[in-house]
Simulated assay, not measured.
Amino acid sequence: MKNKELRTRILFLLAGVLVVAGIVLMIINFSPDRINRVVSVGAVFIGEADDNGWNESHYKGIRKACEENGCIMYSRMGVAEQEEELKGAVSVLVSQGCSCIFLTSYGYGEYLNSIAQEYPKVAFYCISGEGDRSNCTSYFARMYQVRYLAGIVAGKATESGILGYVTAMPIPETIRSVNAYALGARKANPSARVIVVYTGSWDDKASEEEAVMSLKEAGADVITYHEDRPYAIDLADEMGMLTTGYDYVSKQYSNRFLTGAVINWDILYTKVLRDYLSGRANFSKGYWLGLSDGAVSLYPYSDMVSEETRELVTSEEERIMTTLDVFSGRILDNTGVERCSENERISDDELFNHIDWYVEGVEVYE
């Protein structure tokens, strides 16, 4: 009798252990950080992974996100912003088993919907893209927030009051950054001017260097850029001009490199990838991460940046993260038209998709 009772107790104990073990396994299996299958992630780049700029920063960001989440990364390099080339690259990645693909250049967005329709079981994420299908969306960082802060640094540092800005083409991505830089510069120096030169290309060394020369002739003593590679500030630094960087800093400059508006792509890609892996992919609104997420930051200051400037930047950074964004309060455009009133904030939709005007203090060289 006693043996039978003992066996019964042992069976109940074993059953309890199995139940607990099952619960633990369920928790592990449903944890976003635990992936039970190896996922292949694809990425398409307009340039090469060692360009010391845009493509390198994205490549490293995606690679790190994949490593941290147990995914395999496949990539296609040097893919032009043309439909047939992009479709060919995507076809290769899909054939390699990629179920999640990042399109890392703005021009790919034009073909996002048609590609997403062709591969309905693949998730597509495109830089600044405008897809409206259930398996695609856009992603970017709120670069304009740290552009504003870098503009404060530049506005405090300039002696001529003229800042030069070299960029590719007038699209919302570049225009909002130009405007944020100008707002920051004029926060520090109300009479500051930002002169913009468009090169018509994301990667054209000759045009970008020519732009720097013309800006210097126009009186600019600080140069920044919004291109794939840092040709503009490379030359400006050699010429003894002050500079602020963009996106990714891969080399050592002189102390005339004041700071840089940096995107921490690994943080953004990790967020997007983990959402995808855990079934929480945000295809309805896209991803636009900023200062509060750690997705953007300022590069460490040069010793030429004063303590007064640093304190102003810190104060404005706290304001952006806790109360109002950069594009809030009364804002006039460069023709004198009020674009935002005292108690308003410009919407994300306007900033991300539609902005086509410049704030007060911006001049565009044709």
Rank of each mutant, 00 (worst) to 15 (best):
N3H: 10
T8D: 11
A15H: 03
G22I: 05
L25W: 11
I27R: 14
V39K: 08
I72H: 07
E81C: 01
Q82T: 06
Q82G: 06
E84P: 01
G88N: 14
A89R: 12
V90G: 09
V90N: 06
V90L: 09
S91I: 05
Q96A: 13
I101N: 11
F102S: 07
V122E: 00
F124T: 06
G131Y: 11
T137H: 05
A141M: 14
M143H: 13
M143L: 15
A150K: 04
A154V: 08
G155S: 06
G155V: 10
T158N: 02
E159Q: 14
G164T: 09
V166C: 08
T167D: 07
P172F: 06
R176A: 00
G200S: 05
W202T: 05
D204N: 15
E209I: 08
V212Q: 02
L215C: 03
A220R: 03
H226D: 14
D228T: 10
D234N: 15
D237Q: 10
E238V: 11
M239D: 03
M241P: 05
L242F: 03
K251L: 02
Y253E: 01
R256Q: 11
L258A: 02
N264E: 08
T270L: 11
S278H: 10
S278G: 09
R280W: 03
R280M: 10
N282D: 15
F283M: 13
S284E: 14
K285A: 12
D293A: 04
V296W: 12
S297V: 04
Y301H: 07
E308Q: 14
L312S: 05
V313T: 14
D325E: 10
L332H: 09
D333C: 07
E344G: 00
E350T: 13
F352H: 13
V362G: 07
